[in-house]
Design a protein around this nucleic acid. Structure first.
Length: 275
DNA sequence: TTCCAGGCTATGT
DNA sequence: ACATAGCATGGA
């Protein structure tokens, strides 16, 4: 998509495929803060950006514009993706509804921690817990960097409980120590199947969370996480109930190489029904 | 009060 | 390999 890169900001005039509310509130990310309508603070690793709609144009203010070009996936053609996933009328409506969604390039560690917290939880509390974890990171003046793995070791199970992690607190404590045994950078070269097997060995990571980490942490766009909302979508489209494993296989086969994008449009659309 | 939220682990068969 | 209880917590 078209954008203008400056030293301390990115400008986006064509907002057809970029809506910050769609992007941040479609359930892929838990590390942001809403200041007002179309005014959000976004945190990723040790970076920060404010995204605001001004006179119909987006201004992404940041000290690290290049990082956020990648983060917001600005060089990907969403027109082509939308055409590719438009397999039926249902998803066409979903794409229309969430036309401004983009899949973020988040930092792996934040995705792993965030989606372990997400299990059987609700998005507002996940976001709050992630914000409190961030306060264990380096103080960058006006914000905190996400804590490094080393700093995460300082957090006790009770600390995680106090931050609202509930019964997932010991999972987080354990996973942080499991991650010591592997070079995270190296895992990016693994094929998707190997990666999923490894992810499933992590405490608190099951099939759904593993698919979320593959999609949002590794950008493997042919993955399709199935949660309670996608179960409803599956029933809407196929009119039958199946196991989550079967639904995942069916949906990946149905939507193909861009299944992950389809998943985001559908999740965002279906969740809006009951608000 | 009961149900639900981007489910998973542990324990049974 | 499949079924299910139990799990923290707050909002509807």
């Amino acid at each position: 998509m078209k954008y203008t890169l400056e030293s301390d900001k990115i400008l986006i005039e064509d907002t057809k495929d970029f809506d910050i509310m769609h992007i941040l509130e479609c359930g892929q990310v838990f590390t942001y803060k809403k200041n007002g309508e179309y005014d959000y603070d976004v945190y990723s690793l040790d970076n920060f950006a404010n995204v605001k709609l001004v006179d119909g144009k987006y201004v992404i203010s940041t000290q690290n514009p290049k990082y956020f070009v990648t983060y917001f996936d600005l060089d990907t053609d969403y027109d082509a993706i939308k055409k590719d996933v438009a397999k039926n009328d249902y998803i066409k409506k979903a794409v229309e509804f969430g036309h401004g969604i983009r899949i973020l390039h988040q930092s792996l560690l934040e995705v792993i921690i965030g989606f372990i917290i997400s299990s059987n939880n609700n998005i507002s509390r996940i976001t709050k817990t992630m914000q409190k974890i961030r306060e264990y990171g380096e103080n960058k003046g006006s914000y905190f960097a996400f804590p490094t793995l080393e700093r995460l070791h300082d957090i006790t199970v009770q600390d995680f409980v106090n931050m609202g992690a509930g019964y997932r607190a010991p999972y987080l404590y354990k996973v942080i120590r499991q991650l010591d045994d592997i070079e995270l950078e190296k895992t990016f070269s693994y094929d998707t199947k190997t990666l999923k097997t490894w992810l499933l060995s992590l405490m608190g990571v099951g099939p759904k969370v593993a698919d979320c980490i593959l999609l949002f942490g590794y950008y493997r766009c042919d993955c399709f996480p199935v949660d309670t909302w996608i179960e409803k979508v599956y029933f809407d489209i196929f009119k039958t109930k199946q196991s989550r494993e079967k639904m995942t296989i069916d949906l990946v086969n149905y939507f193909g190489k861009n299944a992950g994008y389809a998943q985001q449009y559908l999740f965002f659309y279906r969740r809006s029904f009951v608000k």
